[in-house]
Amino acid sequence: MNSIPRLVLVLTLITAGAGLVLSLVESVTREPIAEQRRQEMLRALQAVLPPADNSPDEDTVELVVGQDKRGRDVMRKFFRGRKDGQLSGLAFKVVAPDGYSGNIDVMVGIDPSGTVVGIEILSHNETPGLGDKIAFPEYKKTFAGKNLDNADWRVKKDGGEFDQITGATISPRAVVGAVRKGLEFYRDNKAEVIADSQGGTQ
């Protein structure tokens, strides 16, 4: 009964059946999942961009921000918000690699001059009750209106002017540092980012 061919046959049939069912489910859920992810992206963009009447997730520019460990280019996407055809603001994602536990993904929204309109924490693993306060509205608000010229981009403990959180200095320090680097990158590459053509690197 338990000959090898039978074992192989049964196991093959079971895995083939599983594969069939899974491919069906995947084809049904593919669209809704893509839509959910897009909606989430749009919500984050809306939260950080000045009022816009276009679809910022379709009006983008990608630039090289640096190389990763293996020498491959790391790209950064700039989402451009427009009002009546005029550029009203830009949004881009920065990653703070030095959070308390893992990366912190931050969406930064600025006006074309480089002043922060708002930030949104996309994902983080900071300690609940301490570091995770970086995702609270009261904390995110402290970035609005700041730019590289009118603010010292360090937390207060390091001599700057950004609030740290009681019991958690590392998370705000990471966020402030990442946003600052993002703003500096924008300042240095502004011409390419706001250029109308889909120029830069593709």
Partner: peptide
């Protein structure tokens, strides 16, 4: 299946 459905309908 649960994971795909959850991501699609209970994000």
């Amino acid at each position: 299946i649960v994971q795909l459905c959850m991501e699609a309908y209970f994000y």
